[in-house]
Nucleic acid binder design. Sequence first.
DNA 1: GTGGTCTAGACCACA
DNA 2: GTGGTCTAGACCACT
Lengths: 118, 118, 118, 118
Amino acid sequence: MDFKKNIPIYLQIMDKLKQDISLGTLKPGEKLMSTRDFSIKLKVNPNTISRVYKELEGENIVFTKRGMGTFVVEDENILQNIKNKMADDLITTFIKDLNQLNISIDEAITKLKEMEED
Amino acid sequence: MDFKKNIPIYLQIMDKLKQDISLGTLKPGEKLMSTRDFSIKLKVNPNTISRVYKELEGENIVFTKRGMGTFVVEDENILQNIKNKMADDLITTFIKDLNQLNISIDEAITKLKEMEED
Amino acid sequence: MDFKKNIPIYLQIMDKLKQDISLGTLKPGEKLMSTRDFSIKLKVNPNTISRVYKELEGENIVFTKRGMGTFVVEDENILQNIKNKMADDLITTFIKDLNQLNISIDEAITKLKEMEED
Amino acid sequence: MDFKKNIPIYLQIMDKLKQDISLGTLKPGEKLMSTRDFSIKLKVNPNTISRVYKELEGENIVFTKRGMGTFVVEDENILQNIKNKMADDLITTFIKDLNQLNISIDEAITKLKEMEED
DNA sequence: GTGGTCTAGACCACA
DNA sequence: GTGGTCTAGACCACT
């Protein structure tokens, strides 16, 4: 995993984990790597991973058992909700941006189809 | 105008101006507000407006006449390009975001059409 | 039994046992569950139960007979003291918390009476 | 300000600030000390103050203006709510604890009154 | 000058 | 072994 500049590393790691979870690569209840191991694997400071886990916990995507590790939340619905929420947010802001540029949704769809063929 | 967190204010102001220009609210050759007045209007640090004007100048969207102020360029092509570029950027990042969420363009189009009817 | 975050599990278990003892659910001289069985029942690491028993022994609430298990002490006075001590602790910390929030004891009593009627 | 052991410094600072706000020592809209200055004053690492400000922001008690500093939220209601919420939480858990110890609210009130006279 | 991020590394309580 | 907290200090973008 190599990181983009300009975007905080911890956010990039968070997004990667969310993806893994929403795609099922990480399953509900599954244990995440320990902060230390993960930090070594990604060549990143342990504090950075700590922060990732804490932020994800704040979003109710993972939870921590003291001294045991950090785990993906077990409620499958919540996980599905994460994905849906992310998707809805994406679409909504896209439409808002289109409006601001005075582009109709139809125009946008046309362009999207063009891009699809490439 | 209220600003989103996480996105630099100067970028948000830049985008707003680009919009105004591409929508014709600001016409080619028209004078922009002085940095001082604009900063007061937006309740923002004057340096921030200075930066906005400087960045826009770097993109050849405005130009500065010493002692006279800052003006929208008069080349209509450039202005058309702005609009096109903004639209393309929007679509491109949208598609990239979709990929990250593992959503196909077709799915997105379906959702867009749903939203359109509301 | 489900555990609160932020409070060590071993403390929560200790409190539960003290409660059971002071309420008579666990009687003087009665044998506690083995660390192993108790840890299985609570889905907790056996070391955690060991620590609970050791701490309770340090407070003279239980005692261990080698090879026989762990037992509630038989001195009724001690058990009565436990209850009193827990009550006093509760009241004392409650008052301290009130002070920090700048709430008078009278205000608190008023609220308590309101809640009592519900 | 000297810190208790066993309780994280950042929590103690948070509580102190919440108190100051709910008591009006810090007024709505008022700027907090800069992370650096505050860290020097409290003889604490700047990161620790950073964390305090970020956690308070997460609780909607303060907000941050980029490059400008950190400020107490301006909505007076929110601030009042903080105090009420803290008070309600306190009373509720107190009553729950009483129940667990099999102590009636009346008994508790009696004890509280005794303490009040000391 | 302001907060945000990150590294390096330490110590601690908990399991 | 696990995460939680903290120090020390660096660099950065924004105002």
